[in-house]
Write a protein that binds this DNA or RNA. Sequence first.
RNA 1: GCCUCUUUAGCUCAGUGGUAGAGCAGCUCACUCGUAAUGAGCAGGUCGAGGGUUCAAGUCCCUUGAGAGGCUCCA
Length: 661
Amino acid sequence: MQPENKIHNIRQMIKITFPDNSVREFGSGVTGLEIAEAISNRLAKEVLAISVNGEVWDLSRPLTTDANIKLFTWDDREGKETFWHSSAHLMAEAIEFYYPGTKFGIGPTVDTGFYYDIDLPEGIQFTEKDLERIEAKMLELAREKNDIVRREISKADAMAMFTKKHDELKQELISELEDGKITIYNQGKFTDLCRGPHLPNTGYVKAVKLTSIAGAYWRGNEKNKMLTRIYGVTFPKQKMLTDYLTLLEEAKKRDHRKIGKEMELFTFSAKVGQGLPLWLPKGTVLRMQLEDFLKKVQKKFGYEQVITPHIGDVTLYKTSGHFQKYGADSFQVIKTPAEGEEYMLKPMNCPHHCEIYASKPRSYKDLPVRLAEFGTVYRYEQSGELHGLTRVRGFTQDDAHLFCRPDQLKDEFKKVIDIVFIIFKTMGLEDYTAQISLRDPAKPEKYIGTPENWEKAERAIIEAADEKGLKTTTVLGEAAFYGPKLDFMVKDALGRNWQLGTIQVDYNLPERFDLEYIGADDKRHRPIMIHRAPFGSMERFVAVLIEHTAGKFPLWLTPDQVVVLPISEKYNEYAQKVSDFLNNSDIRSLIDDRNEKIGRKIRDNELKRIPYLLIVGEKEAESGLVSVRKQGEGDQGSMTMEEFAAYLNKEIKGQLSAFYN
RNA sequence: GCCUCUUUAGCUCAGUGGUAGAGCAGCUCACUCGUAAUGAGCAGGUCGAGGGUUCAAGUCCCUUGAGAGGCUCCA
C-alpha cells in the first residue's frame, strides 16, 4: 500500500517471526505482500496468503502487532484454498453480471477447486453452455486486477446490506454470526459476506474452467430448497489448467466402467435392474482367482467356510436391530403366498453367522470361532447413488465373523489386520489410508449398546492399530450402529477415496442374539464378535483394482495371460496345440481367432492388457517352439511350451510371494 | 429420492421439423503377411419405451426406463 511506511521509522515497529524462528522488524501496518517483497521478488510473485499467529490472513491485510507468520504459495494447501476461494467470488461476480438478482449461498473450496451454491432469479435455466460465457467474463474481470478489499462491519449493517439485496440465504448466514466478527469483501462491483482470506486482487487468476453444474440442497438438508451448484477450478498459469485437463482425460481412460466393458469383465442390463452387476466369463475368472486366493489365506488363519441363504425371516433382522435401523429404507419384505411368512433379502451376513454360532454349545476352548462366507447381499441404494461396480444394489462381501473371548480380542483383531496387509501387498495397493471410525458423541441415538461396551470396543481397535504400527486418522460419527470400525481406504483413478477393507468390533450383536460360551470357570460368558471384510466387496475391490492397474492386472489375476497368435491360418493347428497345453497347465490362454483370416486384427486396447503374446509360425511349428513377447518388454526369444509354462508359473508364484512367504 | 445433463447400429459418435449416417467391430470374397490397423463388397437401426403437437417428429412437448456428474445416504 504505502511502502515508505517501512522506511519511516516514525512508525511504531513490530517484530515478525518467521517459521525458521528468525525475526525481522517492520513498520506497523505492514502487509503480508510487503513482507514477501522484502524477502525476494520471486516470493512476492508466488505468495498467495499468510498465516498470522496460526490464522490465515489476506496478503493485503495490515499487521499491527508482533506476530509469527508463514507465507503460503500454490504448493501449500492454504495458498490454493485462498486462490480458489477468491475464484469463487470471481465466479459469483461474473454470475451477478449476467444474472442480477441471483442469491448466493456458500462458496467454499474443495479438494480440487471450488463451488458456489446459488439461487438464480425466477425462470432462469442454467445450462452447461452458459458456463462458457461465465468463464470468459471471469477472465475479463481477472484482467481488470480489481483489488479485493476486506471490511469489518456490524451485524446490523451486514443484515441491512443483504436485506437490500433480497438475499435470504446470506441473511440466514448472518443471523447465525456473532456481531463484531463479520467481514465483507469487495471487488469491482461485487460484495460478498465472507470470512476470507482472499488474494490481494483478481489478477492472480489466469486460467478458469467451470467443470460442472449440479443441484445441492441449501445447507445439505434435503428438506431445504435445491440450489444450483457450480463447480470450477482455476489456476495461476494456463499450463496448469492444460495439465489438469490432461490428467482428467487420463483418469477417464482408467475408469473401471470403461475398461470393464472393453475387457468384457462385467455388464449391466436395464432388464435385470439397475445396480445389479452381471459378471461376464472373464470377469468371473478374475473374481474367482481373488476368492480362491483369500480362501487359501483364510484357511491358513484358521477360518471355516460356511454358506447361508440369501433371505432370512424378518425376526432375524429385528433381533439384530438392522430392521429397526434400516427396514424402511431397504428392499421390502417378501411374503409367502399361503402362510403369510415374512422374509427379507439378506442385507448382511452377520445375523446368519450368529445363528450358526448359536447352533451348538460352545466351550472357551472352541474359541475363537471364525466363520467366513462370500456372502451376496442386497441393499437398497437410492438410484442416484449407483456407480459402476463401486456402489451397487447386489454385491458379494468377503465376509467373516470371528467370535472370541475378551482375552483373544486384540490378538484376533491384529491377525485380521495382517490379512489386510497380505492382500494389499499382494495386490500392490500401497497407498491406502487407515481410518478409525468412532461414534458421534453428540448423537447417541444412532447407536445400540452400552457406553461401556462401546468404550471397550473403541479402545481395542485403537490399541490394536497402534500396536500394528498403523498410521490412522480418526473420524467421529463414521462407526456402524453396532460398533466402531477400522476402515482401509484406497483412491481411485480420479482421486476419490473408496472404503475397501473394514474390521469392526461388536459387543452388541452377541448380546442381542444371546450368544454364549462356557468358560473355564464353568459359567456362561458372552463372546465378542469381529466383523471383517478385507476386500470390502468383490465388486468394489475389482473396480478399484481395475482403476489402479488400468486393466493391466498382476499376472496371476489376468483373465487372459497369454494370447497365442498364429502367423497365418496354416499354423492354427499348432496354435491350438499350444493353447491347449497352456490351459492344461493352469495358464489361461486364448488363440487370437480374429487372426484366422490373417491381417493383424488384434485391437490394441485389448492386446496391451495381455501380458504375453506367443507368436507361432513356420519356424515354431517345425521345431515345437513358441516365440515369446512380453508386454512392454518386447521379444523374449523362443522356448519350448514346457519351458514357457514353467517360466510363467514361476512368475505367478513370485507375484503371490507376499502370501506364500 | 432430488438437481443438471445424456440416451441414434455390437462399440465410439454425427445428424437443429422434410427419404436414418460415418468409423471401428461383424459377415462374404480376395490377399498368406512376424504385430497400432490389407483390399473390395455385404449386412446391421420400429433413433431407450409410451403418449401428444404437426401435413410431416431422431429432432418440439408430457410421462417413463437406463446411464453420467453432483447433493442427501452408505449396515
